[in-house]
Structures are given as C-alpha cells and as structure tokens.
Amino acid sequence: MKRLRRLLHTPEAIAGALILALLIAMALAAPLLFPGDPQAIAGPALLPPFRDWSLPLGTDRLGRDVLAELVHGARTSLAVGLAAAAAALLIGAVVGTLAGFAGGLIDEVLMRMTDAFQTVPSFLLALAFVSIVGPSLGVVVAAIAISAWTGPARVARAEVLSIRERDYVAGARVIGMHPLGIAFREVLPNALPPVLALSSVIVAAAILTEAALSFLGLGDPNRVTWGSMIAEGRTVLRTAPFLSIVPGVALVLTVLGVYLAGEGVVESTAVRRSLS
C-alpha cells in the first residue's frame, strides 16, 4: 500500500497508471465484452459514432463494430508490446552481462554485434525481418525484440563493468563458484535496476513499432490491430475520418500511459534508493 502511494506521487504517474489500468482491463475483458470475431460484419457500413447505441463507435467500411475492434486491438497492442519488450530486455541483459563480465575477445565480439544492430535503423530492421520471415504474432514480437535489445545490452554492460570489480564478486571466485554462475546469479540481478528503467520507453516504442508494421500490412492478418485499423480508415479519410482518429487516439494515449506510468515507477524506486 505504501509502495503504491509512493508510486503514484505525481499527477503524471497517476494519469499514466489510470490509462494503463483501463487499457489492461479492456484487453483482459475483450472476449467477455465482445465475444466472437471482432472482424465479423455487425451492421451497415460506415455508420458514424454515437448514432446507434448497440454500435457506439459506429462501423467501418465493411460494417464491422469499431468498438469491438478497438478493444480487441488493445489486446494485440499490449501483448505484442509487453512480449517484445520483455524479450528485448532479456536478450540485452544476457548479452550485456556476458560482454561486461567476460571482457576480452568475447566482449569485443558481442559489442561489435551490438554496434552492427544499432547502425541499422531499428524500424527498417523489424520491417526487413517480417518481410523475410512472414507476418505472424510471434514473428512480429521477434522482429521488434531484435531491433530493441541493443540499448539494454549497453546499459547492462556498463553496470556489470562496475559491479565485477566489487569485493563480493572476488568472494564468489574465492569460494570456487563457476564464472557463469557468478555472472548470472551474483552480477546480473544487481545490474538489473538501470536496465529495467528502460522498460517504459521500450514498451512504448514496441507498441508504436507494432502499429507501424500493421499499418504497412505486415502485422498478423488474423488479428485486429490499431495499426491495421488506421490503415483501413485511411482509404475513407475524407468521408469517415473517425475510423482513423479513434485507433490513432487510442495509440497515442497508450504510449503516453505506458511512458508516464513507467517513469513513475523509475522515479519512486530512485526516490527509495536515495532515501536508504
């Protein structure tokens, strides 16, 4: 309870947490609120919002329920964003820890690889990956992860470089612990806080990347996503702008909510650390 209060100590953090809570509730409740296929025809085509209370946000070009699509889209956005960010943080933390802890040739090779990934613009990398392997949810997650792990890897490596000089690491060597055991049991957990501090930015970027991929038609074709909704709406932008505006606003709010809530968490832990 005390932790929660500290977490919500700024209006920005409260706003972020509220948006995020609403979003998660939407994503979790999607199959209950709108059972069945959100891509099924639900009424007349291009029904404007707020006309028919059984279809509150109206329908799209094909007569699909916009609200149902929006709520199911939240599911995809969040799932892809969280999974991709988790994968990116995991890969980054492992690569950064190995590089920083091993040093020498292993460090050199791993950091050159990181450089190589970083020089290619991350969206192009994701785009290329999906184009080659083919669009599906897992591939989209992997594509976003391989374009986002380099930041966490660098942060983890820097942290590990300072931790590996501490006495307790020498102590672990003295008791005969295996180097991999020292790297992953003793060093990695203590190097995590600054790496996790990147997660809000990475989740937000992952959600945007997923939307951009879907917008270009490279999302999973079997799922509604906000990006594909925006792309659909674009064809009737003059006559029915709300079809693009509704998912667009949802996307902006989500990214903002993730970012604000994430910063709130980072700040509350930073406050806690400076207090202790």
Binding site: D167, Y168, A170, V174, I175, G176, E186, P189, N190
Partner: peptide
C-alpha cells in the same frame, strides 16, 4: 582450480562489500 579453492579462503576488510547486497 575451482575445486582447490575450497582449501584456500579469504576474509575481506569490509564485510558489507564482501557479500552480495541481496
């Protein structure tokens, strides 16, 4: 070497720094 380390141990000056903080 790791096995032989069992026989050769160490105590550090700062007992707080000598252990994993967690």
């Amino acid at each position: 070497l790791r096995a032989r380390r069992a026989r050769l141990q160490m105590v550090f000056q700062d007992p707080l720094a000598a252990f994993n903080p967690r």
